[in-house]
Write a protein that binds this DNA or RNA. Structure first.
Lengths: 225, 225, 225, 225
DNA sequence: GATGAATGAGTGTTCATTCAT
DNA sequence: TATGAATGAACACTCATTCAT
């Protein structure tokens, strides 16, 4: 519960901003920007309120720093990893989703997504930054995988502008589940990897049964015309 | 200055709570619970701050009332509509998604979803209420449609516990897009019906091209050209 | 000591700003802008801290309002009073000084002068406003009286640009005495009217004894040359 | 960035307190006690915040030290200078005023006067100290000059308790002008020596024109033209 | 009922002061 | 001795809530 007790008046200049950012991320994600008190952030980082303002000039700048810091250093060599990928596009898709989950979704960094969903209206400029730095690269990576599959004939022709969301939406939902409603739904448990497997399975093969004969028809009146 | 100024918005007495709830929904969705001031809610409803407290004992109760009121009256005859549905399960799925969008997603009521995503941590009991009143029925409706399809052989066997999210996640994302990040992404436009069509299409048929030979393409570099 | 007790939650919208301005003037004069707490101002006006911010958006605006309000309504018909003055210019001078003392110097309004002396550096724009609204008119009134005296031959020729300060400086000092050091000098008491009489007397007649014979010389070696 | 950066201001150790006092005087005069931050004082003196507290136990003590230090060493041989003065009392007066201006008024030390005017209410004991150490000796010097003039018949009989202020008030005003409102009055320029000359001139000779007839001009409208 | 002036607990931010280095 | 990171009491300002009208 209590953050690890530390000796008073410890000098840890280098470590402080990181600790504060981490604490702020946790609390902003959990309670939202407005409902988080800076004193609480400071306490979680093991420092006093005044110390926070030594490193961040205001609560709002702290928020921006949290976003920038969390997403800033993760999206560098993301695309390059896939340029040299050898394997089917289906495998690329599965790899992209599972790897993203393991590296981002399962970590605290995923809280940023929840944060942006919650606070975009209050921080439009940060939301736009998030768009450009996170969503756009993600969308383009997915799109390039899908385009590769279509080009090789592995995938059927797709409206890529929209098909990308067949990958993005499930991952987004998984994160929102984790950070928002999931903890409040004791009757439903989502295992992330099972979830991802299921989503990929459906995305790849669809839910329709392979129709050897045109006879497969549901009960009830046949479709008109 | 102006003689005999009339109050800006003349209201029927009966309508007050409803207008307050509507205004509160708008503002809570846009700015979050904590960042919304009750005075603003009152102003949007055309009444004074004091009047709001005549109808709702506190800001928190107002929030709860917003959630309860908005979701309360929509889920009554939802399931019954599908019990008498005649048509393929694929059609049911499409109908469920488009109808839900038109009746809920495209309306202000969809803001509740965004609200719950943002505020679940601060209102766990309301989040649980939302779970039970909105998400569980929705999940069960989807599940029943999928189960019907599987039972008739129209759909292949599925892990229904997870397959439901292939429907829920895209709709959830569409709402979050609409209420959060969408307005901050001027370079991307999502047309809801095209989006839904694309999601259904992928969900039904998958992205894999129909394979002329039943052998799955082997791993390895895709064919050149 | 305590401000007159008033019933709680009294509604006195019209009276509040004036009461607050009066309290603020007192405290700003006594302690300076920075050392005065807004809560103290509110308490002296018999209201709570929040009420102050109902009428003034910030402490700084309260300060400006104090200055504007205190000097705004006093300098209107000042000059006109002297245009129709019949009497010697010496009498005008005496009247100007004593009247100003009775109407301004002896009242709380004189605190504004002390305030501006103390805070001019922190509120340059207000200081300039004070210059233009208070000091310049005062200087011009004095100058016009002196000019009249010179024109009629009652006064000898003077460098009016500087002679005005023979009137202004003593009055300024009297105010500073009253508001600053006077209360801390228990061994010196200045009676304002005696003080003004003395200042006028010296200013009119000088301190030199009328020299009937050129013999009046002080002891000691006579001046060289 | 810059290799081997030297501290900006290399200081002799001995000089520290003096530099702090000097910096403090400047800033206290400019902004007032409360609005001056100790860190700023330290920075102006080229040392760190902590160092200031090595020499002065608190901001308040720093203030007192500034006052004591600035006025402490100036009033020693002031009176003695005049005891051996040979010349008219008018010359003594002129000399006292101009010398005081050149030695004190025109220097930073004059800021103390402005400081005391502003802060007397917050530091009554210091104000009393200032009274006793600065104002009283000054008053007594002036008084002794005037008394000498009266005794020799050079000056006419005067109420010395008040006549002293005919010297003090103009000098006080000149200082307040210099440190407060003067910089905010771009349309008025006061040349100190011209100002002092004018004040002395008026003080000695008065403003009344020498009357050809010994009869005082009667009250009533001044002669036309 | 309806209003909006008044309240005061709560929060972001500052800054004199301390103290480990 | 000198530093400047850390502290926390203090203060400006906000806003949900109350209540006299």
């Amino acid at each position: 519960m209590e953050p690890a007790a530390r000796p008073k008046r410890e000098r840890r200049k280098e470590a402080r901003p990181g600790e504060l950012l981490e604490a702020a991320l946790d609390l902003f994600v959990e309670k939202g920007f407005a409902a988080t008190r800076v004193e609480e952030v400071a306490a979680h980082a093991g420092v006093s309120k005044g110390t926070l303002f030594l490193y961040f000039p205001s609560k709002e700048e702290l928020f921006k720093a949290v976003v920038r810091d969390t997403i800033g250093n993760r999206l560098v060599e993301w695309n390059s990893e896939f340029e040299s990928f050898s394997g089917t596009s289906a495998e690329m898709l599965r790899h992209a989703m599972t790897a993203w989950w393991d590296r981002v979704g399962a970590t605290k960094a995923s809280g940023i997504t929840k944060l942006m969903m919650s606070e975009a209206g209050n921080f439009p400029e940060i939301a736009q930054f998030y768009q450009q730095e996170v969503m756009r690269p993600g969308r383009e990576l997915i799109r390039s995988i899908l385009a590769r599959g279509v080009a090789t004939g592995e995938f059927r022709p797709l409206n890529l502008d929209y098909a990308v969301f067949s990958v993005i939406a499930p991952m987004n939902f998984l994160i929102m589940w984790k950070h928002s409603i999931g903890p409040c739904a004791p009757d439903v448990t989502i295992d992330p990897h099972t979830y991802i497997d299921s989503q990929i399975d459906v995305m790849l093969h669809g839910v329709l049964a392979p129709s050897p004969s045109p006879a497969a028809r549901p009960p009830g009146p046949p479709p008109k015309k």
